[in-house]
Write a protein that binds this DNA or RNA. Structure first.
Lengths: 343, 343
DNA sequence: CATGCTTCTGTGAGCGTTCACAGTAGAGAA
DNA sequence: TTCTCTACTGTGAACGCTCACAGAAGCATG
């Protein structure tokens, strides 16, 4: 009995080897591997022992070839990538999805569709069946990749409500509108009445919903809406800074600002401090996201926490269900107000 | 001729279909697919036309089953994950690797080894041959996963010089020592003589090398080394802030600080400003990384740019070469001083 | 005209699995 | 006993591809 292990890799054990060692047939080993129905306890035991002894690991390629499944899913980012790579929430999402999938022993393939070429390649790859489903990050409207995948019948779960795709695509999103409501109520509760807002991009559902929540609560509180108090941004830090400057110019009596993202809120803080306003004494500032930027800011930001860990877990759950044949589903998760120093 | 496309996905075309349409044999189609040697121009053309017509995409599982290759690589993060998920450079690296691999039509599998369970699962997955090679991010010493993979003969390229593994593992790293030298020379060139340093963790080669470069240049300039001027951090923002406070307490006459990361440098700026020191007039601050944090800081940081785009490209190049049978290699890439407002 | 060489093409086998089917053994019912 | 049913097991075929090999055709050389 020689253990030749000099240099290169040894040929890994196959299901045949396991069957031989366990004294059963391939079929029985396969049955043990796939749930173990209709196998005697004795055989079950023998097979498991043989697997341990041989160090057998199933060859996924061979399995996929016959089952037609790949037992892997794609994580697809079609968003302008700079925005996301700058946003730490993206990392939380990516990590959450990876780990949730790992629990099911499903690898995650990272796919970035930047150029037109990449889009084509990735679309081909996916529709050819090389992944069983796709986790999609793409909030901007009319995404051609998403539409193609949906049309091809590929199981798909979007992060955030996608615009323009029918109700046939699943998504998981935080309750943006309710989060916005909570924040504005909080600012009202502090006695502020001249509450400004820096919105997100209004071609995204998140941007629209947060603005809607803001308006709703003002209306409900009987505070008249002043359009001068609303400026729009694009979630970037720079746009927050610029937005705050416009806001101060148009409505110098502003006493609170609800900002649709923490990154923008950082910019707002910078602009306010440069203009000599104290936060929170003169102007209270509320962010959105509870990103690391929120605690990095000074003063630390009061913000709305999006449950990113739950979002990723739900995305994976819904995707796997859909791969298993269930219908598309929409999941809305509650947000949470996190009070810090800026209000 | 019916195009039945009602509901579910159609069975995708196989190499047989292409062969039939092109009027050649499977073998010829396969040859066209794999480089096209020993095929007549006429056959070549016919096959390509048939591929376009049928929309054929190779079934990677079937191919892998016979070639033994998976044509995919893993991107493995074994580092304490918080540190990296907080660092935007990680995203640049991940994106760069993904894109460089995409150019070779190789998917990237994201693997996060946090818990002991995950480590075992991932090690099994990799050593079972489900990926052809691994891009490793793990700078901390004595990583058991890395050692296991190396021992199993899995092609491996580390980001940054790994500690404790022999010379048998490839790596790509920025020239930390030379970058540190550049920065300290720059500070000396500004006339500063009481130059402090906040180091990175000294169980990482990066941390060690940057400190070494600092000492070298001081020695070379005849400035005596004052141990009071050297404090250590862990690359986090908080540790930069704490480090600067210690530094100010021990050496109030400090007139410049070389900080081993931009994130820490942000903390240093905060601490200096709180202590009433003006940057750069009273104390010049130099960072390392040229991360987004560098331009986000105020004043904007002078820093050492690590060529992350080139690092990722080189990691992929070296890994593919190694998968192709070449020997492990070490690649050191030059850094670049980026002057901004903080010096 | 035979021989060898080069260039190209088709064919069978096999990669490691799963799946459908056939078959066996044992228990209980007629 | 004989039949039926259940619980389990083994076997061949197939998944779609690549590889090795055999052979054909064309052309130059002896």
């Amino acid at each position: 009995m020689t253990m030749s292990n000099t240099g290169g890799r040894r040929r890994p054990p196959t299901i045949h080897d396991v069957a031989r060692v366990a004294g059963v047939s391939r079929g029985t080993v396969s049955r043990v591997l796939n749930g173990g129905h209709y196998v005697s306890p004795a055989a079950q035991e023998a097979v498991n022992a043989a697997i341990r002894k041989t160090g057998y690991v199933v060859n996924r390629h061979a399995r996929s070839l016959i089952t037609g499944r790949s037992d892997s899913v794609g994580f697809l980012l079609t968003e302008p990538q700079e925005r996301f790579f700058e946003d730490p929430n993206f990392n939380v999402l990516l990590r959450g999805c990876t780990q949730a999938l790992a629990a099911h022993d499903i690898p995650l393939l990272l796919m970035l569709a930047g150029t037109e070429d990449e889009r084509r390649r990735i679309t081909r790859y996916i529709t050819a069946g090389h992944v069983d489903g796709v986790l999609l990050v793409s909030s901007h409207s009319g995404d051609p990749v998403a539409e193609e995948l949906r049309a091809a019948g590929v199981p798909l779960v979007a992060c955030g409500k996608p615009i323009g795709l029918g109700s046939k695509v699943s998504y998981v999103a935080a309750d943006d509108r309710d989060g916005a409501r909570d924040m504005v109520r909080h600012l009202l509760g502090l006695g502020r009445r001249r509450i400004g807002m820096v919105t997100g991009p209004l071609d995204t559902p998140g941007g629209v919903e947060r603005l809607a929540g803001y308006k709703e609560v003002l209306a409900e509180a009987g505070v008249p809406l002043d359009e001068d108090l609303v400026v729009s941004g694009d979630y970037s830090r720079a746009s927050g800074e610029a937005g705050a400057e416009r806001l101060l110019a148009r409505a110098p009596d502003v006493d609170a600002v609800f900002v649709a993202s923490d990154l923008m809120a950082q910019g707002v803080l910078t602009a306010l401090q440069r203009a000599g306003r104290r936060v929170p004494q003169d102007v209270a500032v509320g962010g959105f996201d509870d990103s690391p930027a929120a605690v990095a800011a000074s003063p630390e930001l009061t913000t709305i926490r999006q449950p990113w860990d739950r979002i990723s877990a739900e995305m994976v759950r819904v995707l796997l269900a859909q791969i298993g044949g269930e219908d598309p589903a929409a999941v809305i998760l509650p947000t949470e107000l996190v009070e810090r120093q800026s209000t």
